[in-house]
């Protein structure tokens, strides 16, 4: 070691270039640091350039698909659109709507109402919209709802349904006395939401054996149900795997999960009249059947949601 070090000192005095190269490399990296930056990130600061509609979505396939549908409909009217898809749960996206990082988000009216802290039992879609608008941040508003509904649900796997003799005519309240033996699966946020474990307890008096954090009705939930890792789970009613795997969706007589119409949430005054009209036109055409079919194209046929959105808008005469 000592001999190498000695010889190295000699060579360094002969090759001062080595040190210079090292310094130059460091300087180059430093330069990259200042020029790279994160300035192009639309989430940072007060939003994108004026006139551009930033369409956000939650981190599940249907939300991304809906964002593409609404976004492309705006594009078809010549409005500048940028996407911020696949962000996270509503707990995150609502905050981003409030601070203006995103201007448009496909929402589900019932979930949004529950998220805003209301336990009001609304009887109609209009009532729901009014109730939400009363609770909504002053900078935000809802556009017209679509007929398409995608609800959270309490869904059993086939073997559990069979074991306790429950069918799709049974209701959530039939789980009384059974729930304590069942492991419930859902997204981490389901654990604390009113339209989740909290509501199942207060409305139906159900307490499950334990809760397993999975995903928002996605593949983890499907796989866990299928493998009986969980016996009951929150699955979106538009999920194409329900029929494929013979899952049993229980009825919700107390309407805990409420209305779940797809409804665009926007920032006030940041969308032109024309833009709002374009979104309303989409909502008018979109129904549960169409949504189910589009979901199947994305999740089962593995088509890209953007392509699916464009094709549907075209077939519906909206682009």
């Amino acid at each position: 070691m000592i001999t190498t070090a000695k010889s190295s000192t000699r060579s360094i005095t002969r090759h001062p270039g080595a040190a210079a190269v090292a310094l130059a490399a460091a300087a180059a990296l430093l330069g990259g640091c200042s020029s790279g930056g994160t300035s192009d990130d639309p989430l940072k600061g007060g939003g994108a350039e004026s006139g551009t509609v930033v369409v956000g979505s939650n981190n599940f396939a249907e939300s991304i698909l809906l964002a593409d549908i609404y976004g492309e409909a705006l594009k078809a009217k010549g409005i500048k659109v940028s996407y911020k898809p696949n962000i996270g749960s509503r707990e995150t996206t609502y905050g981003l709507m409030k601070n203006g990082a995103i201007t448009l988000l496909p929402e589900y009216n019932g979930s949004l109402l529950a998220y805003l802290g209301s336990k009001a039992k609304t009887k109609t879609v209009e009532e729901t919209t009014t109730a939400i608008n009363g609770k909504l941040d002053s900078k935000l508003e809802l556009l017209k709802p679509s007929a398409a509904q995608s609800k959270d649900s309490v869904t059993l796997n086939a073997q559990t349904a069979k074991k306790y003799k429950l069918t799709s005519d049974s209701s959530i309240s039939d789980l009384k006395g059974i729930a304590k033996d069942l492991v419930f699966g859902g997204s981490p946020e389901f654990q604390t939401r009113y339209q989740g474990l909290a509501g199942l307890k207060s409305v139906y008096g159900l307490e499950f054996k334990s809760f397993k954090s999975l995903d928002a009705g996605g593949p983890l939930t499907q796989a866990a149900l299928k493998k009986n890792t969980v016996q009951a789970a929150d699955v979106f009613t538009t999920d194409p795997t329900i029929t494929r795997e013979k899952f049993v969706v229980l009825k919700d007589p107390e309407n805990l999960f409420g209305f779940q119409n797809v409804q665009p949430l926007v920032r006030k005054g940041e969308l032109s009249k024309e833009g709002a009209a374009a979104l309303d036109a989409v909502s008018a055409k979109l129904d549960t059947k169409a949504l189910l079919e589009l979901d199947a194209q994305v999740q089962l046929e593995k088509k890209d949601p953007l392509d699916v959105a464009k094709a549907w808008l075209k077939s519906a005469g909206l682009s």
Binding site: E91, E189, S213
Partner: peptide, 15 residues
């Protein structure tokens, strides 16, 4: 979906 202390971090993120 497994347990461990990461549970608090992932759940806390989504909640």
């Amino acid at each position: 979906s497994l347990g461990g202390l990461g549970r608090y971090i992932v759940d806390g993120l989504y909640q």
